[in-house]
Design a protein around this nucleic acid. Structure first.
Length: 807
DNA sequence: AGCACGCCGACT
DNA sequence: GTCGGCGTGCTC
């Protein structure tokens, strides 16, 4: 095939948040080598270079005036295969976002290349003799110091928003020049190894040891260690000789007794397994085993309870064929499970742990290894995009966990649903695990779309909960701030027994707020409709929505009074109350202020386990210590906050959460919930019935009132700086969509937080039947409505974000 | 996303 | 008068 007879073009995806593809021409010498799935280097805009992904190679001349040519082919072989593109297309179309954004979610950032502009000197003359402006002088000195300087760094150096004009002027005077370079950021990790000098034989070595080194005891000692280690492996990691000082080794190197070698090592391969746990050591109920064996013959999605996870793994392990891969999806990085421990120990060199917090270089190595061969991949939702070589099984743990749904940035995909599609496309088997399945999965199971749910056994744990009626307590004057007398008594009893207590309050604004003593004004964010909270750790007032930070706020914005005070709310207030009631107790607070970051949380956790804390007060983070053996009491100060959120799923999620705690807690731990209204149906359910009873009762209500899982939902949020414009846009959107879809469209709705990032939000909610044609029709209408809005001259700058299947 | 172009107020 | 602020629109 001779491709070079005609002109070729490529449509590429750029690593930018842009809709659609862009077309470039392919220079003849590159035509033979180009293919879909490779990255190419292109100029986009004035001078910036990007690594763009080839989405289509074709011969149809695009009808644009200016068609640039690709500069370069970056990958000799495609890095994305046809199946991955098909998967991306599904995500983009189902969740209504551009392919470019899917690409950004899918690729390790190392693959998303964009250039930096550099400046360098163009003249040898000493410019300080010229009439330089102050800014020019700063730039000149910076360039004289380092040969190439990023223009971005120069911008920071000058503290200006734009230095483009300045640089251009200096370029015109032929003082400097600028150029663009794509940075290849991957750096392999190297490790120092030591080996005996290859020219030495045993006799020579013993000679050296006895004669040459007779007066260097330390060197003798080191050589002996190296010789010993050399018996099992030729090259010895420097780290395994940590006890030997560097100067000793250096001396041996200089005497040509040993050599140093730099080896490229993997960041992801773990050391040898710490302890052997064998699947064969796991007791498996033969009935269970038979059931799972039968399940594995069928193709449908399966839904099982947690107790069936290890038998399931055992079963697929038994049928394992070399090269097969298993993906185990977990809701978040910290998720721990016995089954994962078994895999990590058993297959230490054949499993990968992946999550979105890993550094670029690690992700790059993971990508590489998954492509080659690795048996188990344990990871969070972004692992769905890995380039699997031969994926045979997907296991999704804690199926009901809302963390599986991505919110920002787009694509707002749900890992459970996306995993089911992936399994279908790859003809892999998929099994969801949960003791408290989401209503969505229960319905699918009920309608026999899924197979074989067996209720988890120890399900009726609710009767271990004790409710405290705050209304009654208030009437009896048995209420002390946030605490009922009953609760403080229970805490006191626990403390007397030298046991530990956890107090939980679900409240977002946990840190203190700045309040005006004169007029009750509270410091709020200039961009969002929320109060600023004070963070002790950074000593700053912070907005949780837009990350606005202020060092200090001197006066009240209402009455200009300077008489301001920090007042604790949420968990901090609880902590203060507890300190008054139990002055002798060791009380510690845990929330994202005191425990931001994993390390700080771990420190608190260790302290708690070492019994250096009597009472732990906090948000749901605190509940992670639920399995501590000396935990006597866990109490929810206000259970109502958990279930009365403005979200139709709040009771479902609360039940799932409380049940997971009940399952994890020890027998000695008591659970107390304070409520102003303990007669609410929810409390009856959680105390009296098992999850399935509760779920089916609530699902009937959802069906009656047309809520998921019986209908599908799409949320539209329209955002604009001007409230009236956002409202008008939302109104027009509703009118437009109602014409075709009638009652399925609801809104405009003002959300509970009206303003965020300096923009007013107005919502439109769509509820529609679970039929494919309806779904596609509505999505088409949304695109049309979008187009219609952008044609209204005053609404052009209204931003619309779309959330399909919101959580 | 970044950059150009165009329109406004505050300053040598 | 100009410099530089931001709002808007375009990039193959």
């Amino acid at each position: 095939m001779n491709k070079s007879l005609n002109e070729y073009y490529v449509d590429v995806l750029l690593p930018l948040a842009l809709e659609g593809t862009f077309s470039y021409s392919v220079p003849t010498p590159l035509v033979e080598r180009i293919a879909k799935g490779q990255r190419v280097e292109v100029i986009f805009g004035t001078s910036k270079l990007y690594g763009a992904l080839v989405y289509k190679v074709h011969q149809n001349k695009p009808k644009y005036k200016k068609i640039k040519a690709i500069l370069n082919i970056i990958d000799e072989k495609p890095i994305i295969n046809e199946q991955q593109f098909t998967y991306w297309e599904w995500i983009a179309s189902y969740y209504m976002c551009s392919l470019g954004l899917v690409m950004q979610a899918a690729l390790p950032s190392h693959y998303l290349l964009s250039s930096d502009a550099y400046a360098f000197l163009q003249t040898d003359n000493d410019l300080l003799e010229e009439a330089l402006s102050l800014e020019e002088e700063i730039i000149y000195r910076a360039l004289r110091k380092d040969e190439f300087v990023k223009t971005h760094d120069l911008k920071k150096l000058l503290g200006k928003k734009s230095i483009l004009g300045l640089l251009r002027a200096m370029t015109e005077k032929k003082w400097i020049r600028t150029s663009h370079h794509i940075q290849k950021t991957y750096k392999s990790k190297t490790q120092k190894f030591i080996r005996l000098h290859p020219s030495l034989d045993d006799d020579q070595l013993s000679n050296i040891y006895e004669i040459d080194l007779r007066r260097a005891a330390k060197q003798q000692e080191a050589l002996l260690a190296i010789i010993e280690a050399s018996e099992s492996q030729k090259e010895i990691a420097r780290t395994s000789l940590a006890h030997i000082k560097s100067n000793i080794l250096k001396a041996l190197e200089e005497k040509n007794i040993i050599v140093f070698i730099d080896r490229v090592v993997s960041r992801i391969e773990t050391e040898e397994p710490t302890k052997k746990v064998n699947f064969s050591g796991v007791k498996i109920d033969p009935k269970q085993q038979k059931k799972i064996k039968n399940l594995l013959k069928k193709d449908a999605v399966q839904l099982l309870n947690d107790a069936e996870l290890i038998p399931y793994l055992y079963a697929i392990n038994k049928k394992y064929q070399p090269g097969e891969q298993t993906l185990i999806l977990i809701p978040n990085i910290d998720f721990e499970h016995e089954a994962l421990t078994i895999i990590q120990n058993e297959y230490a060199n054949d499993f990968i742990f992946q999550n979105s917090k890993q550094g670029n270089d690690v992700r790059y190595e993971i990508w590489d290894k998954v492509q080659k061969d690795v048996r188990f991949i344990i990871g969070t939702r972004s692992s769905l995009f890995l380039p699997f070589k031969n994926l045979k099984h997907i296991l999704l743990l804690q199926e009901h966990d809302p963390a599986y749904k991505q919110f920002d940035p787009s694509p707002r995909y749900h890992a459970r649903d996306a995993a089911i599609i992936l399994a279908h496309q790859l003809k892999a088997k998929i099994c969801l695990f949960s003791n408290t399945p989401s209503f969505e999965s229960l319905l699918n199971n009920h309608q026999k779309k899924y197979l074989s749910l067996q209720k988890a056994e120890s399900n009726n744990l609710g009767n271990e909960i004790e409710l405290i009626d705050l209304q009654k307590a208030a009437k009896q004057r048995a209420l002390d701030g946030s605490f009922s007398k009953k609760l403080t008594k229970e805490i006191a009893t626990a403390l007397e027994q030298n046991a530990q207590v956890i107090i939980i309050k679900n409240r977002r604004g946990y840190a203190p707020v700045l309040i005006c003593k004169n007029c009750d004004w509270k410091a709020s964010c200039p961009n969002c409709d929320v109060k600023l909270t004070y963070h002790q750790f950074s000593k700053k007032f912070i907005c949780h929505y837009c990350d606005y930070k202020a060092r200090y706020i001197p006066t009240c914005k209402e009455c200009q009074s300077t008489d301001l005070e920090l007042k604790g709310f949420g968990t901090q207030k609880l902590e203060e109350e507890l300190e008054l009631i139990f002055p002798m107790a060791k009380i510690h607070r845990v929330d994202s202020d005191t425990a931001s970051g994993r390390k700080r949380f771990q420190i608190i956790q260790e302290k708690f386990l070492a019994k250096k804390i009597d009472i732990l007060v906090g948000t749901q983070l605190a509940a992670k210590m639920i399995n501590a053996s000396s935990l006597k009491l866990i109490a929810f100060v206000s259970g109502d906050q958990m279930i009365n959120r403005p979200d139709f799923r709040s009771e479902e999620k609360a039940f799932q959460y409380i049940q997971s705690l009940l399952e994890k807690k020890g027998a000695q731990t008591k659970v107390l919930i304070q409520s102003w209204n303990p007669e609410q149906a929810f409390y009856h359910s959680i105390k009296g019935s098992d999850y399935y009873n509760f779920a089916f009762k609530r699902m009937r209500e959802r069906q009656l009132f047309h809520y998921p899982p019986f209908v599908r939902m799409i949320h539209l949020t329209l955002k604009h700086k001007e409230k009236s414009i956002a409202e008008r846009a939302a109104h027009l959107m509703v009118v437009f969509l109602k014409k075709k879809w009638g009652d399925r469209i609801q809104g405009p709705i003002t959300p509970s937080i009206e303003r965020m990032f300096g923009r007013y939000h107005v919502d439109v909610v769509i509820k529609h039947e679970k039929q494919r044609d309806k779904m596609e029709g509505i999505k088409k209408s949304i695109y049309e409505a979008n187009l219609f809005l952008t044609k209204q001259s005053d609404l052009k700058s209204v931003r619309i974000s779309i959330n399909v299947d919101p959580q």
